[in-house]
Amino acid sequence: MANPLTLYVPIKQDPLTQAAAQAAYESFVDSVKAGLDASNILHYARVALVPNPSGEGILGILLITTFDGEMNPYLKFFWQNEGTRKAFAGIAAIALNPPSPPVTDLTGFENFINENNLNKRSKDLYKGYTQSVLQIKAAFPPK
């Protein structure tokens, strides 16, 4: 059964943070692809930069994913994978309200993801199909 993770993290407004957010946005897929591929539970993951109401600068980072099953048992894998760990740690580092205590280990990572997840319930998600990533990959093996 697929579940949503919608991570919204408002960020600081200084130039360095704004540039870091832009860089995280531009490198997102390259950074996380290997880890997400290997997880076999991610349907889609995308990142967006939410603009300030004024239209200038970035208000926050929005990460939207749809994954199979449950999230918490797999956070260990994403923390141990260098690409996904750096991507998430990078977002935590530029948060307007930085995690307290700071994210330095798996426990901190688990807490950061859960505290910033806007979707707490699986019923928040519409599903156009019920197959898992594993089932889809088995049905349509790479050519």
């Binding site: 579940n3 099953g69 449950e70 999230m71 918490n72 048992p73 307290s100 205590p101 426990t107 901190g108 688990e110 807490n111 859960n114 505290e115 707490k120 319930r121 699986s122």
Partner: peptide
Amino acid sequence: KTELNAFPNTFTTGPASQGSQGS
């Protein structure tokens, strides 16, 4: 409060939480 926040989310929210019930 900050020290309590250092415990894992799975423990602090407990087994009836949506996250744990996913498993």
